[in-house]
Design a binder for these strands. Structure first.
Lengths: 68, 68, 68, 68
DNA sequence: GTGGTCTAGACCACA
DNA sequence: GTGGTCTAGACCACG
């Protein structure tokens, strides 16, 4: 999944650091040139992978590394 | 409530006809110069008055007159 | 709705008695760990259910049972 | 009026510049050690004097000098 | 890509 | 010093 992989890679390479907030989902949709639904699916996948944590009404944040 | 009354008046004068779809709530917010939440309240009021019907994921439509 | 249900239950079990005043909405927001607007919605719901009565400038009170 | 005069003086001496936002009214009440109502009265006076402009939901701002 | 719920916090109306 | 309305903008649920 392009969006999820792109963000995941940015986390791996340190471009996105734990605790930092991602751009809003609607903005991501626009900047990636994909639909909002596609971004939502990508975020869901990243949450399930433990890469990000979403907080309703606040934003989506890069997760703290658990114990990897 | 300015937004609700304005839309209600447009329905009364026939500018908005039963079955027609309103612009998206976010667009209404921008065009009326109010915040999204204010539009949400206005839509809620119009729904309770029976002026419009909202369909999740599809849009908000001018209601058919009930028993006029 | 968590806040509304919690208060409603406290009324049902007699922990909150008719006529008693709820804590201020801002305090409820803090103690429930939700935003002020969420408490406002909950209070609106409770008012519509007839569980509480709000008096502008004075507070929100547990309603007297109507015809129980 | 102590609060109004204090803020007005801060504007005159340039400590508060046109366009800058005042602290929230509740915060002003606390920092001046007065009641919220007292701050509201002070703000009203400052608005009438043309010293500040309040915007609902956004804040209270030091007014631009008109044509003095 | 819409409507729906939420965070966070501002000023307003009232007694 | 309370309840009430608003700004600004986030994520969520649904087709």
């Amino acid at each position: 999944m392009a969006v999820a992989d792109h963000i995941s890679a940015a986390v791996d390479t340190g471009k996105l650091r734990p605790g930092s907030r991602l751009p809003p989902e609607r903005e991501l949709a626009e900047s990636y040139g994909v639909s909002y639904m596609t971004v939502r699916r990508a975020m869901k996948e990243l949450r399930e992978r433990g890469v990000v944590v979403s907080v309703h009404g606040k934003g989506t944040f890069i997760a703290e590394p658990s114990g990897d």
